[in-house]
Design a binder for these strands. Structure first.
Length: 901
RNA sequence: GCCGGAGUGGCGAAAUGGCAGACGCACAGGACUUAAAAUCCUGGGUCCGUAACAGGACGUGCGGGUUCGAGUCCCGCCUCCGGCACCA
């Protein structure tokens, strides 16, 4: 295929220009803006600008990538192109745009590579970053590179460690619903408390705490994982089996924020599906805790239920096999069976345990509990369908109205008692919804919601239970047994009695750098690799360093805050910069709280997006940030599939490398195609033929502007010299058909229809239809004999966000050699004039009984009556009405006429 | 099972309740060319029909409904994609 236009020279030229001129540098309040910067010229803002003088801010953020060794694939630039178009559009609209990029570089692949090669992961990370950066820059994105971040850079992770210290030094005060300094935690009881007891009490309340509870251990990866990283009993990364195992680990108390994380969703502009995923993960359910005393002992079983109204229907109870009461309540007669069952359950993997099709299993403990509502003695079983990790690890079983309990009751011949009548009056076992209580003593006759109220009140008065809310969300397991992550700023010490305790390092000790290691390999027993660096671990005073590292998510929890400034070793971010860019300080009307637009993949729905909201809430409570939510509007770009419609993967061999596309068609065509494929949020297959389509469009734009002869001369000179000479681009002349002539009404209409459509589509992120509007303009304009320069100039302004290199080159030609400004990036966005779009005459379809039969042409302002008359008189209409009576004529002026017979 | 999202030509797709298929790909025909590529022009949902032009019927996953009028709204299904799942 013949080259459509010299995109390689044009694109290289403008990328260099933007870089050298710092065209896309974003300006913070208080910074000195050079007078010759196009931003200063546009806004008349040379010199120092305070926040209230700067224009309205717009913060457009991409989820920063993990720089893998494989380089960029075509999925990365999809979101980046969308955000770049918006960033350029907002600049043209007059906003101060923050559009940064960085590297989320701690993580497993670099470490695994280090294990194989013995090379320090920092070196591979550096190499990968430079590949990613070159690829990303080759697409002409308007990032402010002066704010680049690398999470593995000590200047950055110093502040990740610092935020950990803030978590460590805080507790969640339920009375205020906020995080507060740990020093403010009231001491328990009266009078003086022993230092040892006080320390333990505080440690049990910190937002970062140590726990010995069972955690997910992945032997293959040699580390523990968070709930969010385990999918169907396997690791999210690599798909290796994980097992439950008690280990001493650092946890973050995200559960304290469950309600806030839920509530916060109401105020932000995210897709309903994404919000729903977070809601499901948090898993709030309202219900009651009910206490069932045991018949033969002083102990009692606490259960959680969302259906306290069915208490009269509880015919047995079930403890999870791990429940702490199991051993003490089991009778001698049942002990052998219970032990055997527990052993069997412990042997099973979690995958097997949660196997859905599995038949229910369980064993009777021999014990009986007393139903508080009717003093009935009901048997206590253990079964693995009750999970230790949810609620209280015990349930009251109401087989008539719970499908799992029913299955279990049928298998073990336990009684089933109906206590809810369906709204249609039927009484049926297995009815799960709301109805009316029956066979339920003082609840009988009450609709379910009222019955719930009544019984909960009764339980509270009797001291047998209380209203409560339960969450599926678990605390965040925050430590990993890996090398390539942030070390914890924590020391372990022993008190005079020999008890081990932890202590935070002071801020002055940050950053805590990881030690040099020969061997990065994780261990099979969970001993972190850092423990091998004995010189690093052991301090002269006898204390030892924490050897776990933070998970990959730590660095990405707050990077968007770091972007609000440039490198600053004295604080995690400046309050004035944070206030301006996160939108809490003056910056014009309509400023949104948080990042204005955040674009990234859906895969982080319950990982990064939940974790960073949690950190942000804590930082907000502690007064370090000014908004409660980090990301105001969030959009997930859809996956790009291979040409075969399958997910791109190395093994399928359907991966498309952007470098090849760029070489063949250039960055502008690549950007345009990624956006033209379809709506941003949809899943869509790649088709390289489609790139040719938009490439041809750019060729048409080029040929519309340039003089054919001068371009032919240019091409021949290039071929003759055998090398690409960027200077020669200047010899290509504008087409003689472009003149400073006034535009005809038809030309203006074409232009303003295009302005309207592109403006509306960019506002709504409909890039595919914005591009088709540009195509329609070119298809018409290419036929014009005289091309008014002013019209084409506005067209280039519309093209600039989407295909910036070509637009800049043609704009420079149009402006002529005397023009002073080097870039069009800050030229004001064109406005459309609705008056120019008004038609003098309108063609309207005429339907008979809803079927299109004819068309009429009427004056734009024609009355309904006149339109009706014209429709009835239209050529093809009278024959169709013959012998029939017209019942009604619907006239929608400007739209259509429908004659009903 | 539950919660989201989607289903429109050969393909990617477009359509404030108002002419279904804009724009693009692929395809076919033509112009230019010694030829090809590139470019430019033309065509196109399906079926019936005609020498041709006309003309007609059907058509947005399926079945109903509301409406003068439904791809769009409502009810009931089917299929695909994503997420959650013995969560009491």
């Amino acid at each position: 295929m013949r080259r459509q236009y010299p995109f390689d020279l044009i694109e290289a030229k403008w990328r260099r220009f933007w870089q050298e001129q710092e065209t896309f540098r974003a300006w913070n309040p208080g910074e000195i803006i050079p007078g010759d910067h196009p931003f200063a010229r546009r806004h008349g803002l040379a010199g120092e600008a305070s926040a209230d003088r700067l224009p309205r801010k717009f913060y457009i953020l991409d989820m920063f990538p993990y720089p893998s060794g494989a380089g960029l694939h075509v999925g990365h630039p999809e979101g980046y192109t969308a955000t770049d178009i918006l960033a350029r559009y907002r600049r043209a609209c007059g906003c101060n745009v923050l559009h940064p990029m960085g590297w989320d570089a701690f993580g497993l692949p670099a470490e695994q590579y280090a294990i194989r090669t013995g090379q320090h992961p920092g070196r591979t990370t550096e190499a990968n970053i430079s590949v990613f950066k070159r690829q990303i820059q080759s697409l002409g994105f308007s990032y402010d590179w002066s704010r680049e971040i690398d999470t593995t850079d000590a200047h950055y992770f110093k502040w990740t460690q610092w935020i950990f210290l803030q978590l460590y030094n805080s507790w969640f005060n339920p009375a205020t619903g906020k995080a507060e300094p740990i020093d403010s935690l009231p001491t328990p009881g009266e009078g003086a408390v022993a230092p040892e007891a006080l320390r333990q009490y505080r440690d049990s309340r910190r937002l970062a705490y140590v726990s010995d509870a069972p955690v997910w251990w992945c032997e293959e990866l040699g580390t523990v994982l968070a709930n969010e990283e385990v999918i169907d009993g396997r690791s999210d990364v690599g798909g290796f089996p994980v097992v439950r195992r008690p280990m001493r680990q650092w946890m973050l108390r995200i559960t304290a924020y469950a309600e806030r994380l839920l509530k916060g969703l109401e105020k932000i502009d995210w897709s309903e599906s994404l919000k729903e995923m977070q809601r499901n993960w948090i898993g709030r359910s309202e219900g009651a805790e009910v206490v069932f005393p045991l018949a033969e002992s002083k102990e009692a079983i606490m259960v959680f239920t969302t259906r306290p109204d069915t208490l009269f229907g509880a015919t047995y109870m079930v403890l999870s096999p791990e429940h702490k009461l199991v051993d003490s309540i089991t009778t001698d007669g049942q002990r052998a069976a219970v032990c055997a069952y527990k052993t069997e359950v412990a042997r099973k993997s979690d995958l097997e345990r949660t196997e859905l099709a599995r038949e229910k299993t369980g064993v009777f403990t021999g014990a009986y509990a007393v139903n508080p509502v009717n003093a009935e003695k009901i048997p206590v079983w253990i079964a693995d369908y009750v999970l230790a990790s949810y609620g209280t690890g015990a349930i009251m079983a109401v087989p008539a109205h719970d499908s799992r309990d029913l299955e279990f009751a049928r298998k073990f011949a336990l009684p089933v008692r109906l206590v809810v009548q369906a709204p249609d009056g039927r009484e049926s076992t297995g009815f799960l919804g709301d109805g009316v209580s029956v066979n339920s003593g003082f609840l009988s006759g009450l609709p379910t919601p009222e019955a719930k109220e009544r019984i909960t009140g009764w339980l509270e008065r009797m001291g047998a239970g209380r209203r409560t809310v339960n969450y599926k969300l678990r605390d965040w397991l925050f430590s990993r047994q890996r090398y390539w992550g942030e070390p914890f700023p924590i020391l372990w010490k022993r008190d005079p009695d020999g008890n081990l305790y932890h202590e935070a390092l002071p801020e002055s000790a940050l950053p805590v750098l990881p030690p040099a290691l020969e061997d990065y390999k994780p261990t099979r027993d969970g001993q972190p690799p850092l423990a091998r660096a004995t010189d690093w671990v052991n301090l002269p005073d006898g204390s030892t360093r924490e050897t776990n590292t933070m998970p990959q998510w730590a660095g990405s929890c707050w990077y968007y805050l770091r972007f609000t400034g440039r490198r600053d070793d004295s604080r995690f971010c400046r309050a004035d910069a944070e206030g301006y860019w996160m939108g809490s300080s003056p910056g014009g009307a309509g400023v949104r709280p948080g990042v204005d637009l955040y674009v990234g993949g859906i895969e982080h729905a319950v990982l990064h997006l939940l974790y960073s909201r949690f950190w942000h809430n804590v930082l907000f409570d502690l007064g370090y940030v000014s908004t409660p939510e980090p990301f105001f509007k969030l959009v997930n770009q859809g996956l790009i599939l291979g040409e075969d419609g399958q997910k791109m993967s190395k093994s399928r061999g359907n991966v498309v490398n952007p470098d090849e596309i760029l070489r063949e068609y250039g960055a502008d065509a690549f950007r345009l195609y990624e956006m033209f494929m379809g709506p941003l949020e949809m899943v869509k297959p790649w088709n390289t033929k489609g790139v040719e389509g938009v490439y041809r469009f750019l060729g048409r734009v080029w040929r519309l502007f340039v003089d054919e002869q001068s371009e032919t001369d240019f091409e021949q000179a290039q071929t003759a010299s055998g090398q690409d000479n960027p200077e020669a681009l200047g010899r290509i002349k504008l087409s003689a058909s472009i003149r400073d002539t006034p535009a005809t009404p038809a030309q203006l209409k074409t232009l303003h229809a295009c302005i309207k459509k592109v403006t509306e589509d960019l506002e709504a992120l409909r890039f595919n239809t914005a591009i088709s509007a540009l195509m329609i303009f070119i298809n018409e304009a290419i036929a014009w004999d005289d091309k008014p320069a002013a019209v084409l100039r506005d067209f280039l302004l519309l093209l600039q966000p989407l295909a910036p290199h070509l637009a800049e080159e043609l704009y420079a030609k149009l402006r002529g050699p005397d023009a002073t400004d080097g870039t069009m990036a800050y030229e004001p966005w064109p406005k459309y004039d609705p008056a120019l779009l008004v038609e003098k005459t309108i063609e309207m379809p005429v339907q008979v009984n809803g079927k299109l039969r004819d068309k009429i042409v009427v004056a734009a302002g024609a009355s309904a009556k006149a339109i009706e008359a014209a429709a009835l008189g239209a050529e093809k209409i009278p024959p169709l009405l013959e012998g029939k009576t017209v019942k009604k004529v619907i006239v929608v002026p400007g739209r259509l006429v429908n004659i009903v017979v």
